[in-house]
Design a protein around this nucleic acid. Structure first.
Length: 263
DNA sequence: AAGAATGTTATGTA
DNA sequence: CTACATAACATTCT
């Protein structure tokens, strides 16, 4: 389910809530071996990098989690229910119990293994050390459409399908524009917008790119009402019918008026 | 109740 | 080699 903002949100929440006495209970399914080795151990830190999560334990092992398309965490307060059949890993903290469901990845590695995962990732805009220049160089030197580059986690870490369409729309860039034909000023604007959008999404747990109508409660609004083009019939800015087509294997959404395609 | 979904990886094709 | 596309994977929600 998640793009990078949710990984960071989980990292923050879990760093706070899983401190103290930790036990792993009832690991099941394909990740049972990794989880069983951690039974009774303590979590010392949680880190997000792009869509990846790293849990550091007091035996120096690191649990690497990637939620993939459908993975999620179930959070329980007391009374804690029995793990459901599909729970791969349960982490128990003070007042918070977390079950990991349907991850694409859940493996016990070591700090060097963590570094190897991070090496394959581009800069993460949600981290203070994100190197915008490195992202620019990758885009600027490529003839691939920018809409494809933005889903490549080695170019930028943490972008998913919603952020791709929404941030390109805000920046006024067509997804089909080749990377080497993107103007520096457009890139700079896009990078700024991306950071803002991701930080807001981390705070709210939801990717929103338009303000809700005055007086309405955003909670009650559908996702598409708080977005500009993604899964919308018409562009939220100008009303033009949104175009939708597969790019890099996933449906991208764009407004032909706000994001004129390259000539 | 079939199908879509905020994803990655391995494999295939031009 | 490059730059795509496609299939497989697994669960929840509509």
């Amino acid at each position: 389910m998640p793009e990078g903002h949710l990984a960071h949100r989980y990292a923050r929440e879990h760093a706070r809530g899983l401190a103290g006495r930790i036990a792993v209970a009832s690991p099941q399914g394909r990740f049972a071996v990794e989880a069983a080795a951690l039974d009774g151990r303590r979590i010392e830190g949680v880190e997000a990098y792009g869509k990846h999560l790293f849990y550091s334990w007091d035996d120096t092992s690191v649990v690497h989690v990637h939620l993939g398309l459908v993975g999620t965490f179930l959070h329980h307060r007391v009374p804690v229910p029995d793990p459901r059949g599909q729970v791969r890993l349960r982490m128990v903290g003070d007042g918070l119990t977390v079950d990991l469901v349907a991850p694409a990845r859940c493996e016990r590695i070591d700090p060097a293994g963590r570094d190897r995962v991070v090496e394959r990732l581009g800069p993460d805009p949600l981290r203070g050390d994100a190197d915008a220049e490195a992202v620019w160089q990758r885009i600027h030197r490529s003839r691939s459409p920018i809409g494809a580059l933005l889903l490549d986690q080695s170019v930028v870490a943490g972008l998913g399908n919603v952020l791709r369409s929404e941030t390109l729309h805000i920046a006024g860039i067509s997804p089909t524009r080749p990377g080497d034909q993107v103007a520096r000023a457009d890139f700079d604007r896009w990078w700024h917008v991306l950071g803002e959008t991701m930080r807001r999404a981390t705070a709210t747990g939801r990717i929103t790119t338009v303000d809700p109508p005055a007086g309405t409660d955003p909670e009650g609004l559908a996702d598409s009402d708080l977005r500009r083009v993604y899964k919308r019939e018409r562009c939220a800015r100008c009303g033009t019918v949104v175009q939708r087509w597969a790019l890099a294997g996933r449906d991208v959404h764009a407004c032909p008026a706000c994001q004129p395609p390259p000539r």
